[in-house]
Simulated assay, not measured.
Amino acid sequence: MKINENTLLDGHKVVLVPYNAEHVPRYHEWMKSPELQQLTASEPLTLEQEYDMQRSWREESDKCTFIILDKQQWADTSVEEEQCMVGDVNLFLTDPTDLSLAELEVMIAEPSYRGKGIGKEVTRMMMCYGVTKLGIQKFQAKIGLDNQVSISMFKKLHFQQVSVCHVFREVTLELTVDEPVRMRLLDDMAFMKERDYRQTCSNRQELVSQ
């Protein structure tokens, strides 16, 4: 999605940055994992196909993608950005007749970063961006039945289970963004800052010291 091609979202533990070509090799290595393929219902791609996917996600108007970076590690300018990658987060506009509905997908690909509250922070950051920048009024999350950690996280964020598909072994949860939900989200995420990605990249250390 073009709208976020130069957007950086600054959180407590993470920064979210646009999915660029230099991120593809690390992402491709992640997606060789049978565990991640199962959790994301994905098929393995060749590296060339992964580059094609990255380009399409940047251009297509129904997909908004950010790469999750470890903020503390990213502050060290001697570390390449792709070495700071933790996972990714996506919003998919799945209904062309209703652009206020988005499917939300979060992947913490690095096992050492799981169970530390990063998924919750990233999810709320992406929801806040979706509400304020894309006009999203309802979020959906489709999660494998075996992924109880993610199901529990979304329920803690007030998503409600609306259906279970035993054929595909997934559960669908939803959250409607009415005014109380919107105000609570904006209040909870008041710490998040939206920055110019290219400008911030040139002075990473300053971001963490603020």
Rank of each mutant, 00 (worst) to 15 (best):
Gln137Tyr: 05
Thr172Gln: 13
Tyr51Ile: 08
Gln83Gly: 01
Ile118Met: 00
Leu36Glu: 06
Gln72Tyr: 06
Glu43Asn: 13
Val89Gln: 01
Tyr113Ala: 04
Ile3Gln: 14
Glu29Ser: 11
Ser61Trp: 04
Asn4Asp: 02
Glu194Phe: 01
Gly87Leu: 09
Met125Phe: 11
Ile108Lys: 02
Trp57His: 13
Thr77Gly: 04
Glu206Val: 11
Gly130Met: 04
Ile151Gln: 15
Val171His: 00
Val14Ala: 13
Tyr129Val: 04
Ser61Ile: 03
Val171Asp: 00
Glu174Cys: 12
Glu105Gln: 12
Lys32Phe: 02
Asp178Trp: 05
Val86Thr: 04
Lys133Arg: 15
Glu43Gln: 14
Leu207Gly: 03
Cys128Tyr: 10
Leu36Cys: 11
Val89Lys: 00
Glu103Leu: 06
Ile67Leu: 04
Gly130Gln: 02
Gln72Lys: 13
Asp52Ser: 12
Val15Leu: 10
Leu207Arg: 09
Tyr27Leu: 12
Asp76Ser: 10
Leu99Lys: 11
Asp88Ala: 10
Ser42Tyr: 04
Lys71Trp: 03
Leu186Phe: 11
Ile3His: 08
Cys84Ala: 11
Ile143Phe: 09
Asp187Phe: 07
Tyr19Asn: 11
Met1Ala: 14
Val17Leu: 08
Phe159Tyr: 15
Val17Pro: 05
Lys2Pro: 02
Gln210His: 11
Leu157Ser: 03
Met107Asp: 09
Asp187Lys: 15
Leu145Gln: 11
Gln161Ala: 11
Gly87Gln: 09
Lys193Arg: 15
Lys155Phe: 04
Lys138Cys: 09
Asp10Arg: 12
Met53Lys: 13
Thr132Gln: 15
Leu101Arg: 09
Thr46Glu: 08
Leu99Ser: 09
Gln137Met: 12
Leu157Asn: 08
Ser163Arg: 07
Ile68His: 04
Met153Asn: 07
Leu91His: 01
Val181Leu: 02
Val171Leu: 13
Ile108Cys: 03
Asn4Glu: 03
Gln54Phe: 09
Gln140Ala: 08
Met1Ser: 14
Lys120Cys: 06
Arg26Ile: 15
Thr123Leu: 04
Gln140Thr: 06
Ala109Asp: 00
Gly115Phe: 10
Gln148Arg: 13
Ile136Arg: 03
Leu47Glu: 10
Leu8Ile: 08
Glu170Gly: 00
Gly87Cys: 10
Asp196Phe: 02
Thr65Asp: 12
Met153Gln: 06
Thr200Gly: 03
Asp187Trp: 07
Phe92Met: 04
Val164Ala: 08
Lys142Leu: 09
Ile151Phe: 02
Val167His: 11
Glu5Met: 03
Asp70Asn: 15
Ser152Ala: 15
Thr77Trp: 00
Gly115Gln: 10
Pro44Leu: 09
Val171Pro: 00
Val167Thr: 12
Val171Gln: 15
Leu93Glu: 01
Gln140Arg: 14
Asp98Thr: 00
Arg184Gln: 13
Gly117Leu: 06
Glu174Ile: 12
Val149His: 10
Thr176Gly: 03
Asp187Pro: 00
His166Pro: 02
Lys133Gln: 15
Thr172Ser: 14
Leu157Trp: 06
Pro96Met: 01
Val162Ala: 06
Asp178Met: 01
Leu145Ser: 11
Leu9Ser: 03
Phe191His: 15
Val149Met: 05
Val177Ala: 02
Thr77Val: 14
Asn90Leu: 09
Ser78His: 07
Gln160Pro: 00
Met189Leu: 07
Ser150Arg: 01
Lys142Asp: 07
Gln49Asp: 13
Thr94Met: 09
Val17His: 05
Met127Trp: 05
Arg55Thr: 12
